[in-house]
Design a protein around this nucleic acid. Structure first.
Lengths: 209, 209
DNA sequence: CTGTGGCCTTGATCAGGATCAAACCGGCGT
DNA sequence: ACGCCGGTTTGATCCTGATCAAGGCCACAG
């Protein structure tokens, strides 16, 4: 983005800080704001009336939240760690994007990128077996973190096993058993707050593409 | 969209006709074009190397195809019926959207709408049981067709059972059995090329939201 | 130090949907 | 008319991952 765009954005931005576990918004709330994450991790989820949950995704620094143009948010967003965000009033944001199409282009880019990720995840949910799902998650999460912090064998997992399960369409037990097996097989190592990938080769080999 | 925009678009548009079963493009092809559907139905899918398939969605009149901004297409698109489309060279399209942000806005709207649909489908794939998945599909498909042709109890299903199965993360047998049961229970009626919804109430009741 | 609660792991059993297998059906060409 | 072929239905059995049920681990409070 250009200097001017950033300057204009700065003028509209409000800074928001959330502690661990705090909700940012709830599905159905009036969608007044758009956010970008500057630090921390959030969980995005949709809930069914009977308690079933689908974790749509996780948001990390650099991600937009709430760029869909509906009246209300279609999912809930909660902080998994302490989080800081830039908040924009959607009305201001929209009118600014009228005057500066470079901003709109950036939004559009973000939206189509999200869409591609969503379609990838459909394949995981629709056609992958349990072990493949967990492998896909670990590998992609590592990749995403790598684009921010630089590649590292140690992968932080701020979400609970339940969150992973609800992201992957599995139960907590299946996720736990799968990762326990990988630890026995020395594919990964348990480290506090995450895992260390010992054998990227074998992990990647679980996933036919 | 404004008159001017449409005029500009007309100038760039090429008309494409596809017969039943013809491919529009294949995943991995260089993404030179963007399309909008003017008539017919297409199937969008991603394939795994071992033959597993995920049908990402179906495109019907009014839909854009290929608005993702990657170098190559990330899924394949095939005609399920005879199809006609408007084809735009992506380079022209992009430069036009620089000059006319209303076009870009429309694209962005389409993209975020697609994204919402994709997230809805994640819930179906991740957390719905077999019967709910089929019900979600029939109800949403009917809804979509209704927005084009007007609501009707008769729902055309141009896709095969295999396509539905691969869309819903099920097998063809499960889809078939589910619909057979609904026919026995007088919830739907088999008509050539589709079904007739006899009892919308009971169908909708299958789906907790 | 000990109790408590949240999360995770591990084991035993169950079941929903997959897989395997066969029959059915309708359209089409000869 | 007939046989063929692809898609679909139906039935029998199997298996992956869900469910049910304990137990373990650790951080934190008293």
């Amino acid at each position: 983005m250009s200097e001017d765009d950033i300057a204009d954005l700065e003028r509209l931005a409000a800074h928001v800080e959330l502690p661990t576990r705090a909700p940012l918004f709830h599905a159905g709330d009036l969608a007044r704001f758009v956010y970008t994450v500057t630090s921390g991790t959030l969980r995005l989820q949709r809930d069914l009336s009977d308690g079933r949950r689908q974790v749509i995704g996780f948001a990390i620094p650099g991600d937009f939240i709430g760029l869909s143009l509906d009246e209300t948010y279609r999912f809930s967003a909660d902080a998994l760690t302490a989080v800081s965000l830039c908040r924009f009033d959607r009305k201001d944001f929209t009118s600014l994007s009228h005057s500066r199409q470079s901003l709109l282009e950036r939004l559009h880019l973000a939206a189509t990128h999200e869409l591609t990720i969503a379609q990838d995840h459909m394949v995981v949910l629709g056609r992958r077996r349990a072990e493949e799902r967990v492998a896909a998650f670990v590998l992609r999460w590592r990749e995403r973190l790598g684009r921010i912090n630089g590649r590292s064998a140690t992968v932080g997992l701020p979400m609970s096993r339940q969150d992973m399960a609800d992201h992957l369409g599995l139960t907590i037990e299946t996720v736990s058993r799968t990762m326990a097996r990988w630890m026995r097989d020395r594919i990964i190592l348990d480290v506090p707050g995450g895992i260390r990938v010992l054998d990227q080769q074998r992990l990647a080999a679980i996933l036919p593409d």
